[in-house]
């Protein structure tokens, strides 16, 4: 029980101090999980992070489940995940409660008028970074275009885009030029 509680507390701590998620979390994970607790080695953490990126779900949660499972099995994974998501639940619930009231103020409306614009710029940056990391050949460019066009101009769900692209990846795995990494 004590160990489950420790898992909860450690991941609660990480969830509280990670802003922006994803890669911002890695240094904190390293300090808490590797240095302070010694639950996994640094290499194991990096492996786990790589797995977390190519499995369904949110990377932070994947990592928490994985490390929790390694420590205490299924319940370890569940407690670590609950620890990870609890700060979000608390903080966002508080913000959401007040947000409706806030939105009535003209000042806040102007602030979000500016903020919505910067969100577009942040997404552009993310797309550029991901493009550089993920698109390395003609197949990648074609799948990017198909995915963009289908989602923008048709009501097709992103779920089908993901399934279709996974099948395409598998079907072309022996095609020269399509699968160099």
């Amino acid at each position: 029980m004590k160990e489950l509680w420790n898992l909860f507390i450690s991941f609660f701590h990480i969830g509280t101090f990670t802003f922006g998620g994803g890669y911002a979390m890695l240094p904190l994970l390293e300090k808490e999980i590797v240095d302070n607790r010694g639950w996994v080695t640094k290499d194991e953490l990096l492996d786990c992070y790589a797995i977390g990126q190519c499995t369904p779900g949110i990377i932070a949660v994947n990592t928490a489940t994985f490390i929790g499972y390694k420590q205490r099995g299924l319940w370890g994974g569940i407690w670590a995940t609950l620890g990870m998501v609890s700060p979000s639940l608390i903080i966002i619930t508080i913000i959401a409660t007040f947000f409706q009231k806030f939105q009535e103020y003209e000042l806040i409306q102007h602030a979000f008028g500016g903020i919505r614009i910067v969100v577009v710029a942040l997404i552009v940056q993310a797309v550029i970074n991901m493009w550089n990391q993920s698109i390395k050949n003609w197949l990648g460019i074609i799948l990017f275009l198909i995915s963009f066009i289908l989602t923008t101009f048709t009501p097709i769900s992103p779920v089908f885009v993901i399934i279709f692209s996974a099948i395409t990846g598998l079907a072309t795995r022996n095609t020269k030029g399509a699968n160099m990494e």
């Binding site: 190519c54 993310a126 991901m130 990391q133 698109i135 990648g140 990017f144 692209s165 072309t172």
Partner: peptide, 11 residues
């Protein structure tokens, strides 16, 4: 290899 470029397209 297929999913990653599609995710960029989705985003």
């Amino acid at each position: 290899n297929g999913i990653r470029p599609a995710v960029v397209g989705l985003i």
